[in-house]
């Protein structure tokens, strides 16, 4: 029963909503609207579950003194401070100072840290492209030349060099690049459809947990 019930729900709802998309009747619309409201409620529960799971994971890490356990304190403190300020400054309590503190912490602490972390990537990419971008073979040379054209096409200097470079760069991106992308996308689309069908029909059961057994 523990396995059969979720499989039955997926089978019935999977088939129903596949058909519902193509049936523009009033009854089908009302069912869809009601289901959307259920999903909204369930999503809120999922958020609570995720928060509980995160706290539990870090609390256990601290308790068992696992490697890097002190970092878990930072995570828990972050959750407590930002969560607390967010609740106090939110629509329920409307404490102005809490909302102000929350916004300041986010904009002046978290945002610069996140941006800095991401910006560091540019240095690694510069170093990596300098070392790896070599015309070692015919294929590598094609990649190199197209990369050059696209890079020059993006910057104003490319148009200064020759006014057609941005157009050529756009052509590279829109024609050969898209041709290969479309092939990949078709593959992904077919794969996703096959996987969805396998899940709806109960052939693929790994989502139930226990490695599909």
């Amino acid at each position: 029963m523990k396995q059969k019930l979720p499989l039955l729900i997926v089978l019935v709802l999977g088939i129903f909503f596949t058909i519902q998309f193509f049936v523009p009747s009033r009854a089908s619309e009302v069912t869809y609207q009601t289901t959307l409201q259920w999903w909204l409620v369930m999503s809120s529960f999922a958020m609570v579950l995720a928060l509980g799971s995160l706290i539990n994971h870090h609390a256990l890490k601290i308790k068992r003194r696992k490697e890097g356990w002190w970092n878990s304190w930072v995570t828990l403190a972050g959750i407590a401070v930002m969560g607390g300020l967010g609740i106090l400054g939110g629509p329920s309590f409307r404490m102005g100072w809490a909302n102000d503190a929350y916004t300041r912490l986010f904009l002046f602490v978290q945002a610069p840290m996140d941006s800095a972390m991401f910006a560091i990537l540019a240095f690694y990419m510069a170093s990596a492209s300098y070392r790896a971008f070599r015309a070692r073979s015919r294929e590598a040379t094609v990649l190199l030349v197209s990369g050059f054209v696209v890079m020059l096409g993006i910057i104003p200097f490319g148009a200064m060099l020759w006014h057609r470079i941005p157009d050529i760069a756009e052509w590279v991106m829109m024609v050969p690049n898209m041709a290969s992308k479309r092939g990949i996308l078709f593959g992904i689309g077919l794969g996703a459809t096959a996987t969805a069908l396998k899940i709806i029909l109960g052939i693929e059961r790994s989502w139930l947990g226990g490695g599909g057994k």
Binding site: A126, S129, Y130, F148, M151, L152, I155
Partner: peptide, 24 residues
């Protein structure tokens, strides 16, 4: 910011050219 991106792209192009000259 686009000026900065242009300069960094030009630097990258120069570095790649230099790398390939050295490689050959």
């Amino acid at each position: 910011a686009m000026n900065a991106i242009s300069a960094s792209h030009l630097l990258l192009i120069a570095l790649i050219v230099m790398g390939n000259v050295g490689y050959f």
